[in-house]
């Protein structure tokens, strides 16, 4: 067996990864909570954001700086995507939205593949290998930054939802679409804003991932199933559920990687996913079936 030190280190590392997972999942769960659909284009948008961050770095902008530009840009992109593509083309039917977002993910992913080929790209930042010494283990600086920034982004999102008028409108639409439109809320606009917020979360996650990860046209796939798992585990539509679920999944992945080996590390995640879907599809925190 492993010494407690190693296990503790694996748990800490899992928490770091989990925070970024949580951020990708928050975007997904928000969209589900309001639009009641699963956005299958989520992974592809993350990939697009990582490419954007990569090319920002190419022209000399550090990902930690680029995030302040990319988050608004991806908010606008997400808004436009929902308002002008997904909304109109699905005629308000859930089944259609499912197919349209799947179609979009195929388009985005393969256009990136056609444009940049399947090369794996990574960036080389000066702080890439800096570590913090905790005595029994080392924590990589970019991952600590990712952890802190993910928490900050989640807090900002919570403030937007709780304190602003737009946030109130979003929560109103999530609860009762018809009622919200009766009191004068523009539902199509709220849908698009929600989608935009989801995309902005992904842009932030992309900038946080890039210093320690690589970019590849299919890189989003690895994250999107993890994000689905977290969302299902935390309860579809529940933001706190997504945060806790993300941290939990990060730790599970880290530990099953330690005990089962890297190539089977993800199996643990999928088994949790299938189990939760079968046994308790409403998740641990979700109320709605």
């Amino acid at each position: 067996m492993f010494a407690p030190d190693i296990i503790l280190a694996a748990v800490l590392n899992g928490l770091m990864t989990g925070a970024v997972y949580a951020l990708t999942a928050v975007g997904l769960t928000l969209v589900y909570g309001v639009l009641h659909i699963i956005n299958f284009a989520h992974g592809a948008i993350l990939t697009a954001a990582m490419f954007a961050a990569f090319f920002a770095w190419k022209i000399g902008i550090d990902p930690y700086v680029a995030v302040f530009a990319l988050a608004p840009i991806f908010f606008a992109l997400g808004y436009a995507l929902q308002r002008f593509v997904i909304g109109p083309s699905s005629h308000g039917e859930d089944r259609n939205i499912l197919l349209v977002t799947l179609g979009l993910s195929i388009v985005i992913e393969n256009l990136l593949l056609a444009a940049f080929r399947s090369d794996t790209r990574s960036i080389d930042v000066p702080y890439g290998f800096s570590v913090i010494d905790l005595g029994f283990t080392f924590l990589s600086v970019p991952r600590v930054v990712a952890f802190a920034a993910s928490c900050a982004a989640a807090a900002i999102l919570w403030l937007i939802l709780a304190k602003t008028d737009t946030g109130k409108a979003i929560r109103a639409v999530a609860k009762e679409k018809l009622g919200a439109s009766l009191v004068g809320i523009d539902v199509a606009h709220v849908y698009a804003v929600t989608f935009g917020l989801g995309a902005a979360c992904l842009a932030v996650a992309a900038c946080l991932l890039l210093p320690t990860f690589y970019v590849h046209p299919r890189v989003g796939n690895a994250y999107v199933l993890v994000a689905f798992t977290i969302v299902v585990l935390g309860g579809m539509g529940s933001v706190p559920g997504a945060l806790l679920g993300g941290l939990f999944i990060g730790v599970v992945e880290s530990l099953s990687g330690l005990f089962l080996g890297e190539s089977l590390g993800q199996i643990g995640i999928f088994l949790i996913f299938i189990l939760v879907l079968l046994v308790r599809p409403t998740g641990l925190f979700g109320a709605r079936a």
């Binding site: 593509v85 083309s89 197919l99 349209v100 799947l102 179609g103 979009l104 993910s105 195929i106 388009v107 985005i108 992913e109 393969n110 256009l111 990136l112 593949l113 056609a114 080929r117 399947s118 046209p217």
Partner: peptide, 13 residues
């Protein structure tokens, strides 16, 4: 690579 799949996705939408 990928151009045919990108087209499939567009057709789907």
């Amino acid at each position: 690579p990928g151009i045919d799949l990108a087209l499939y996705g567009t057709l789907l939408v």
